[in-house]
Amino acid sequence: MITTDATDLPDLREMPGDWRRALAVVAHPDDLEYGCAAAVAAWTDAGKEVVYVLATRGEAGIDTLDPETCGPLREREQRDSAAVVGVDTVEFLDHRDGVLEYGVPLRRDIAAAIRRHRPELVVTLNHRDTWGPGPGAPWNTPDHRAVGRATLDAAADAGNRWIFPELADEGLQPWDGVRWVAVSGSSTPTHAVDAAPGLDRAIESLLCHRAYIEALTDQDPEEYVRDFLTTTTGQAAGRFGGRPAVSFELFPR
C-alpha cells in the first residue's frame, strides 16, 4: 500500500476522457480489483469499452491449492469480477504464474492483444521495483514488474509493422492508436479518476476473488475488502479535491 504526504505534491489531474476503448493488461486475477476497478466502473458507465488481458491465470497464488485446481478457479473468479464493473471480455495469455520474464515473447503477446483490440488507452500495474518511494518501500513482485514494463513497450511495438511482422500474417495489422499508458499503483501518480461512483461495485468486484482472499487473511472478507479499498482510494483524496480516487501515472504517446 502506497502512502505519501500529499501536502507538498501537485494536485492530480483528471484522467483524459476523450477515448472509446481501453485495454487493461496485468499479471494475475485480482490485480485490477486491488487497484482500479472503481475507475473501470466509471468508464463503462460512461459507455466506454474496457477489455481485460491477464498474462497468467494466477495458478500459483494459493498455497493450499495445486495449480491445476487453482488456475480454473481463479479464472472463474476473474470473469465474475470483471462482469461486476461492466467488462465482458477477459482474455488469458497462459504464461506461467510466478515465473513471468520480461522479454520479447511477453512483449509480442501483449502487442498482439493491443493490435487485436485497438485501444486508445492502455492500463497496467506498477512496473517499478518497489511499491513506494524511498528506503523501506515494499518490494514489488517479478510478475508485476515484467508485465508492466512489457506493456509500456508493447504499446509502441503494436504500431510498428517491422516489429513482430508475423502478427500481420495472423490478421493483426499494426495499431498506432494508443494515446496513453496509465500505470496503476504508481508511487508517482499524475492523474486520477473519482472513485466514489464506482466504489461499491469495486468492493463487490474484489469480493469475487473470495478463494484468494480467504487464503490471504483471517479477517472477514467483506470487512477486509471494504477497509482496503476505502483506505487506498482515500489516500489520493488530498491531491484530488478531497474526493476518493483511483490514481494513475499517465505516459502519453
Rank of each mutant, 00 (worst) to 15 (best):
A6M: 09
D8Q: 14
E14T: 13
G17Q: 11
D18Y: 08
A38G: 08
A42D: 10
W43S: 03
T44Q: 05
G47E: 11
G47Y: 07
G47T: 09
V50W: 00
A55T: 07
A55L: 05
T56G: 04
R57L: 09
G58V: 02
E59P: 05
A60D: 07
G71F: 03
R79C: 05
R79T: 07
V84F: 00
V87S: 00
V90D: 00
F92Y: 10
L93E: 01
R96I: 15
G98L: 07
E101I: 01
G103C: 13
R108I: 01
I110Y: 07
I114R: 02
R116P: 03
H117G: 02
P119F: 04
H127I: 06
H127M: 14
T130Y: 14
W131N: 14
G132C: 09
G132Q: 04
G132A: 08
P133T: 15
G136P: 08
A137W: 04
N140S: 10
P142N: 13
D153F: 07
W162F: 15
A168F: 05
L172D: 02
D176F: 04
G177T: 09
R179Q: 13
V181R: 02
A182R: 00
A182Q: 01
A196K: 12
R201G: 06
E204S: 15
A211P: 03
E214Q: 14
E214N: 11
Q219H: 12
E222K: 13
V225S: 03
R226L: 06
D227M: 12
L229Y: 06
T230Q: 12
T230I: 01
G234F: 06
A237Q: 02
G238N: 04
R239W: 04
S247D: 13
R253F: 12
